[in-house]
Nucleic acid binder design. Structure first.
Lengths: 194, 194
DNA sequence: GGCGGAACTGTCCACCTGGACAGTTGTGAC
DNA sequence: GTCACAACTGTCCAGGTGGACAGTTCCGCC
């Protein structure tokens, strides 16, 4: 336990009565994002949440169920608008702020990528992933339409995958400037389609 | 252990004398890709490789070292040309066959994505990841140049991230048709730049 | 204050894991 | 055949884990 972690432990207050479940969900996201799925144990997540490790079994029953609940929690907390000005048709507003958001809080993205990979092995996670991807793609289609771009499935799929890739690389290799420049170039490529 | 796995166990021959190290590397890739990093243990990888688990310590010393060696192994085995006709300038040849390759062997890609995420937590993995990404980007730049597209860093970064995202989604959600259509649309977007 | 139920704690236990290590086997050189 | 060394095996052990569970605490209602 490094000094940094000690400080973090001291700073995080123990959850109040009735707040344990929420604290465990947030803790699971953090542990997975920073240490990987391998280190998500009853004890590590409980320690992160400042509760006893038996509470994991109490609220979630199993580690797997905790993970599924944490994925739902993370996705519910991260779904936002893909445009800074929804419905405006302003291409510059599409994906505006994404890079900054990822830079400010890479843990949620990292957690989600970890769980998306895990969904290959855990069928019960898959519907959540599919649902969120579909939601984002539909929103993107709407924004492209508003911008005067007739977006077929392939274009929507590509554009969303491009941003997915930019974010993945930003999270993993940490170069927000390159990600931002990539988003700009993406808009440049889309502009002539309007 | 399911019937399928039993058959796989029966089918995979024990490595010959002196082949254990290689077998363990390939086994590590397979175990991580199919079961996740969490289930990569001395015993699971040894079982997959049909050797005794002590051989992991013998050849690699630690689990971490095995992982690093497996990443190098995987990257070395997967780096190929990004164009079906390198240097030809043929846009249709860029990324040709990528979707089919991923579909035929998703394990390598999945393994790499797992390790790329792990690189966030394991500094010693990072140089390998950075190196391969850089290699691919340089190759992409060369192909775009040959196609008459003056590709700045941002465009190269975007195009590569787009394919990264398409492959990631293909590996995780398994829709090669959408990935293929995405690649085509990517070429469509690039064509006017030539 | 008493009660019931939910939230929470901390102990227990069977099993698993990383890795050390002594002993065995295989190989190539002489 | 002998020797040296690398590859390999399988046992051992301290520590960690998932999860069960009895007991404690908290809370809202009466």
């Amino acid at each position: 336990m490094t000094g940094t972690e000690t400080a973090a432990m001291t700073a995080r207050p123990a959850p109040g009565y009735g707040e344990g479940r929420q604290a465990l969900l947030a803790a699971a996201v953090h542990v997975v994002a920073t240490r990987g799925l391998r280190h998500l144990t009853y004890r590590s997540v409980a320690q992160e949440a400042r509760v006893a490790h038996g509470l994991v079994a109490h609220h979630f029953g199993t580690r797997d169920a905790l993970l599924e609940a944490a994925l739902e929690f993370s996705l519910a907390n991260s779904v936002g608008s893909i445009s800074a000005a929804p419905g405006s048709g302003d291409l510059e507003a599409i994906f505006a702020g994404v890079v900054e958001m990822v830079q400010a809080n890479p843990d949620d993205q990292a957690f989600q990528y970890e769980l998306i990979l895990e969904a290959r092995r855990r069928p019960e996670l898959r519907p959540h992933v599919v649902q969120v991807y579909a939601t984002y793609r539909q929103a993107l289609r709407n924004e492209l339409d508003a911008a005067g771009i007739r977006a077929d499935d392939a274009l929507v799929h590509l554009v969303f995958a491009a941003v997915d890739g930019l974010v993945f690389q930003q999270v993993c290799l940490g170069d927000p400037d390159a990600a931002g420049a990539g988003v700009k170039r993406l808009r440049d490529l889309l502009r002539p389609l309007a």
